[in-house]
């Protein structure tokens, strides 16, 4: 199995064409295997402590604007994945225009999120500090606003999104749009790298998002999903999973 595919360029030289889409099935299989193993493991070995109550005082976790960002991003990524991947696996439809419009939406909201997180949000709350690394091994160490898993997920999504958006914008510049006509401004090997990065980051996003969705839907973590929909967690939930000394929830908006 190859990671990349190659082709001959206009002068017969071997150049990178892009990622090998055979990897898609590997990624999907690995993601599902992990999810299945995790689910089974949790079912068999999982500690079943008392479930924190969702009643009682509520603590604001995500502001409405951030929740809107998350869901717009989720929808655009979903659309991008569907329009990008289905034609590759043989389900053909007019995907390109939808794809780049969704891509532009994603770009805009991500830019918004970057600006907002730089100036309005607590950037450090998402930062992975050395102390966070003790979390998985020491049950007494509780996270601040975000768990290590969440931070890792966010870091991965950040890197992959930026890669997929960056490469996507370059590809966008290479097609006819209402604003410009396409050129062959990039050499075929450069273009190959762009396609490779776009493809590979897509594949890794598929894995990352699969896990994100899985964990989001896990019973013990459903309250996070609710917080991303409704914006709050209960004080109980907060105490159970977070260290309030490290996250002054009240201050969070």
């Amino acid at each position: 199995m190859n990671i990349a595919e190659f082709k001959r360029d206009v002068w017969g030289r071997e150049v990178l064409l892009g990622v090998s889409w055979d990897l898609l099935w590997v990624i999907v299989a690995l993601s599902f295997a992990f999810i299945a193993l995790h689910a089974i493991g949790m079912a068999v070995l999982g500690r079943r402590g008392p479930k924190p109550s969702s009643d009682g005082p509520r603590v604001a976790r995500h502001a409405a604007v951030d929740r809107a960002f998350h869901w717009i991003m989720a929808v655009s990524v979903f659309v991008l994945l569907v329009t990008g991947v289905l034609p590759i696996i043989g389900i053909e439809f007019a995907w390109l225009t939808i794809h780049w419009i969704a891509g532009l939406v994603l770009t805009v909201v991500v830019l918004f999120h970057i600006v907002r997180s730089l100036f309005w949000l607590d950037l450090k709350s998402m930062w992975i500090a050395p102390r966070d690394l003790k979390e998985p091994f020491d049950s007494s160490v509780k996270p601040g606003k975000y768990s290590l898993a969440q931070k890792s997920m966010h870091a991965a999504v950040t890197v992959l999104s930026l890669l997929v958006i960056g490469s996507g914008l370059v590809m966008f510049a290479m097609i006819d749009t209402p604003w410009w006509n396409r050129t062959n401004a990039l050499s075929e090997s450069t273009l190959g790298w762009v396609f490779f990065i776009h493809g590979l980051s897509t594949l890794l996003l598929i894995a990352t998002i699969s896990l994100h969705v899985y964990f989001g839907l896990r019973p013990e973590k459903l309250f996070y999903l609710r917080s991303m929909i409704k914006g709050w967690v209960s004080r109980d939930e907060l105490e159970a999973h977070h260290d309030s000394s490290r996250w002054s929830a009240g201050e969070s908006n």
Binding site: R8, L17, I175
Partner: peptide
């Protein structure tokens, strides 16, 4: 290896491409 052959670009629809015999409708890459 153009789009039609599974590649990443079109040689004909380029600034100086020799495209006298190409399309005027329905292009998509």
């Amino acid at each position: 290896a153009c789009y039609r052959a599974g590649g990443n670009l079109c040689y004909a629809d380029s600034p100086q491409g020799m495209n006298r015999e190409h399309c005027v409708f329905g292009a998509s890459r």
